[in-house]
Design a protein around this nucleic acid. Sequence first.
RNA 1: GCGGCUGUAGUCUAGUCUGGUUAGGACUUGGGCCUUCCAAGCCUACGACCCGGGUUCAAAUCCCGGCAGCCGCACCA
Length: 583
Amino acid sequence: MIIERVIMKNEDVMNIAKKRGFLWSSFEIYSGVAGFFDYGPLGAILKNKIMNKWRDYYLVGEGYYEIESPTIMPEEALKASGHVDHFNDPMTECKECLEVFRADHVIKDVTGEDVEGLENQELTEILSKEQIRCPRCEGHLTHVWSYNLMFQTLIGAKGKKSGYMRPETAQGIFITFKRLLRFNRGKLPFGIVQLGKAYRNEISPRQGVIRLREFTQAEAEIFVDPKNKGHPRFREIESQVLTLYPADIQEKDGEPIKVTAQEAVRKGIVSSEILTHQLCLANKFIKELGIPFEVIRFRQHLKTEMAHYAIDCWDVEIHTDRYGWIEVIGIADRADFDLKSHSEYSKEDLRVFMEYDQATTIKKLVVKPDMKKFGPLFKGNAPKISAVLKKTDPESIKNAFNKENIYNMEIEGENYQLTPDLLSFEESQETVRGEKIYPHVIEPSYGIDRITYSVLLHCFQQDDDKNILHLPADIAPIAVNVFPLVNKDELVLVSEHIRDDLRAEGMIAELDTSGTIGRRYARSDEIGTPFAVTVDHQTLEDKTVTIRERDSQKQVRLPVSKIPKTINGLINKKIKFSEFEAI
RNA sequence: GCGGCUGUAGUCUAGUCUGGUUAGGACUUGGGCCUUCCAAGCCUACGACCCGGGUUCAAAUCCCGGCAGCCGCACCA
């Protein structure tokens, strides 16, 4: 028997997803709000299973730790991260053609002046003073207003402190870096992950769950030594083949290339081993969710689209019939931008002390002021002068003494003359055991909602006109269905026992007695339940039941007592269905 | 945000142009009958005119506004 499989379209998938309780738009009875989606009963399980699989990769596999930080953040923190300034775009609209522009961009194009950071009022004044018109139709432009992509809120009863809903989960990790570094006993590299909601007040969200105002991210921040961007277990994955679409090929309108991870590093296509390792992890993860290799590609950010601090950035894209290639994961080398910036704003030292393999000893000339003479001579200014001297190169002072026997220095407009008797020079030895550095950050950022959507889209297929959700067994919401072949009391009773045994084994199991057996198989297939146990007349005679596999529609007969362990084994891929003899 | 199109049970849809009886059908779902392996059949039940205002004796139908969806433009550090 040959099953004819047809890939389904976005529209059909979304309809079934709504009907079967995976996904629907939120607040429906109040006519809905764009950019918000609910996960229904099955969708919530599916999403959680995907997130737990992600944890298997990053917590168990990579040995990283998860934290949970608040979704509301104070303004200062987001000021440091650059989000307050960057998410606050000054906008202006043409009164004639109704085009909307970034006001600072329009001004820069005309005057050539960089006006970033100016107030809206000032920008409005520049627009009218310079008589700047619409770049497209020469129409008049409106006053400048801010469009803030972050949801703003007020913290506290009097609401004096301004806060925002976090636009990404990553910042919670950077902010706690000091404690995390201590937790990891001061050593690099280490990784911290966070899964949770993030918020962006999109101007006009559309495209279903592709662009949400509230969405779920799974992010890892991997802190590494900038001098060592290797990965200890790179050998394990170096032969993995990736579909890469590097920036230079995009610029030449070329086709993506298939290369092994090893080649990607050797030829310098991807900037580091650890970044490549992340691409491989993402590749494997996506494939294990049931998304075929052909619809996955890694697109490198063009220089123009890459954030100014990022060294290298790759988007994992999945092809969809409706929206083309969509970004589901962003993998970036963010260098030291975030930690440096938080360090500057918070005045906390977020550097890591890196010990050298070998300590080096440096010989140095040090200038020492004779404070007994300094005090009476310079009075209150003495401490100032000695502080400046400490920072001055002793050699230059020595040179001055050799030439003119005097050293002139100026502090805050005052002139001071130092004579050799006021200073002595000493040779000192200093041992340098290491240095403080800002770690670089490798950041894979997974969009869980987009991934969940992609899984539904690519796992749904029409097999001989029936809708079948070919989910990998380990992420299917319902593990197994139990059906009495006909709706008779004695069969139902046995079925209930089997369902309870399956639940006791830790699986989500359901019983369905309604309609004909065929209808029940169909319903079960449509929500992706990988296995069905059917109780029939023979069960009453010899205590055996059949297990039906969703994808092959084949059945095997086994003793009732072996069912829970067998189904569990099948779901965890410890047993293969094909090992049994089909009936 | 702008423009165009659209909005009837869970889903698909008839009716709207040309206002007029209890808004009709199919599928789905619940209950029952029948039924010993892949959405069969029979009986039965539940279930809808996106919201608000206006015109009219009378509005699913015409008009205005809002909301939502789709498409295009713009936006998407």
